[in-house]
Amino acid sequence: MELSRYPWLIELNEELKQFITDDIIIKVVTEDWERRQYYQLREATFRDEQKILKEDRDEQDFKALGIIAIGQMFGEHDRVIGAVRIFPDGEQAWWGGRLCVEPLYRHHHAIGKALINAAVSTAKNLGCQTFLATVQQQNERYFQKLCWDSLDTRNVANLPHVLMQAQIENYPLQHVVMQAYSYKEA
């Protein structure tokens, strides 16, 4: 159906985008539409909103696994509302990065926690012994509460960041309550 012939339908669709759901799943990117929305959310966050990066994609994306939070509407996948990537650096070390949540869902603190839990747990299941990330300084305390240690400070994209390491023995985190969230293994 050609939507441009039905302006009321386009308007309704835009209004529905603002509807916030509590039916959320966390999974590894597998579908083309998921990958498109995964990159769109990253670009909207890091390029457009925060203006940290001129270009969001980099060489790590060729070997990275994208992990996403998908909001479901009426039991059907609706759209990507959160994202993170993980990638190997050697045989036992992995990195996480580009953690972002759609602005409408940032009050759902469990989405970020669930994405971090899935990222570290997925890497751990793939043989990771050391999981690292550079985290914006204002988020250091948030990660510490999720069993991460601060190792060093750095400047990334002219912003203060902290090099952090997950206490991998604590993952998956048992205290990350997933009541309304389901988690699909990679």
Rank of each mutant, 00 (worst) to 15 (best):
H109E: 05
Q129N: 13
I111T: 00
R79G: 13
V101I: 14
H109S: 13
L99F: 14
P88L: 05
A119P: 03
I111H: 00
H107S: 14
C100L: 03
H109T: 09
A93S: 14
L104E: 10
G112V: 12
C100P: 03
L99T: 04
V80N: 07
L115S: 14
E102I: 02
G82V: 08
H107P: 02
S121P: 10
P88K: 12
Q92V: 11
E91W: 01
R106S: 13
G127P: 14
R98E: 07
L104Q: 10
N117E: 06
I116H: 04
G82C: 08
G82S: 09
G96N: 06
N125L: 10
G127Q: 09
K113E: 15
K113S: 15
P103M: 02
D89F: 01
I86G: 00
N125F: 06
H77N: 15
N117L: 10
P88T: 09
G96R: 05
G97A: 07
L104G: 07
L115E: 09
H108T: 07
V80D: 07
L99A: 05
C100G: 04
L126G: 06
R79C: 14
G90I: 01
A119F: 06
R106E: 07
V80Y: 04
A93H: 04
A118L: 04
R85K: 13
K113V: 00
E76V: 15
P88E: 06
R98W: 07
K113W: 03
H109N: 08
D78P: 02
T122D: 03
Q129W: 01
A110M: 11
L99G: 06
E102H: 14
A83Y: 02
C128M: 13
P103D: 01
V84C: 09
G82P: 05
R106C: 11
T122E: 09
A83S: 14
L104Y: 07
R79L: 12
P88S: 09
A114G: 08
G96K: 00
H77Y: 06
H109R: 13
W94F: 06
L99D: 02
Q92C: 05
H77L: 10
L126F: 13
R79V: 13
